[in-house]
Design a protein around this nucleic acid. Structure first.
Length: 196
DNA sequence: TGGCAGATTTTA
DNA sequence: AAAATCTGCCAA
């Protein structure tokens, strides 16, 4: 149990294009050592948001107080509140000064299943961390993690050697602008994704 | 300074 | 289909 996900992603993991990082994040582990205990899950679904030619990206119109973390160094957390209710967790990518990020949309719960189920109010394992809002709820990720360096506890990314067998590329969910861009990626046939 | 849209989720 | 509920951002 302890030490299983200690192989944290190093800085050079993020030293490549946002799309490459997004695809590489599939299969990696998101770990949160929270007050209620450790929760962790495998990333099975992500979306890329690009600085250039992507009107759906929060940073598309330049830097503001809200999207500032997106312009920070890659490997930073960008967490924001959407619809006044749900948090969305992103991994900042792209060079410093370039507002890009990868939205993590779904996890396969691996550690702390009971904690996650209680936070979510459901024990349905394939729905506990499916969808960006639900994922943050299950993992207790909030605005306080905004700007956090994802190399360090309590919130970090790890690699357990898992290899993705088949990767699917589709258009992103829930956006009106740039809805035709193929920037959503998920593990094929995975039962934990938020939707087909 | 106010109004509105939004990378969602659940069912009032 | 529509509500729940917050806030950054720009003038609908």
């Amino acid at each position: 149990m302890e030490g299983r996900y200690t192989q944290r992603l190093a800085d050079d993991f993020y030293q490549r294009s946002t799309v490459e990082v997004a695809r590489a994040l599939l299969g990696k582990i998101l770990v949160h050592e929270g007050a209620a205990g450790v929760t962790a899950g495998r990333i099975v679904e992500v979306e890329a948001y690009l600085f250039h030619n992507d009107a759906a990206c929060h940073a598309a119109r330049g830097q503001t107080a809200r999207n500032a973390p997106m312009f920070g160094p890659p490997g930073t957390a960008y967490v924001y509140l959407i619809y006044g209710i749900h948090y969305c967790f992103n991994v900042v990518t792209g060079a410093e000064g370039e507002g890009e990020a990868v939205l993590v949309r779904a996890l396969e719960p691996l550690v702390g299943l009971e904690i996650m189920a209680e936070r979510r109010g459901t024990a349905a394992i394939n729905k506990v961390a499916a969808g960006p809002g639900n994922l943050c709820r299950a993992m207790a990720i909030t605005k306080e993690h905004n700007g956090h360096n994802l190399h360090d506890p309590p919130l970090y990314l790890a690699d357990d050697g898992y290899v993705v067998s088949e990767l699917v590329t589709t258009t992103r969910v829930g956006i009106s602008a740039a809805a035709d861009l193929p920037l959503r990626f998920y593990i094929a046939h995975n039962p934990f994704i938020s939707r087909k």
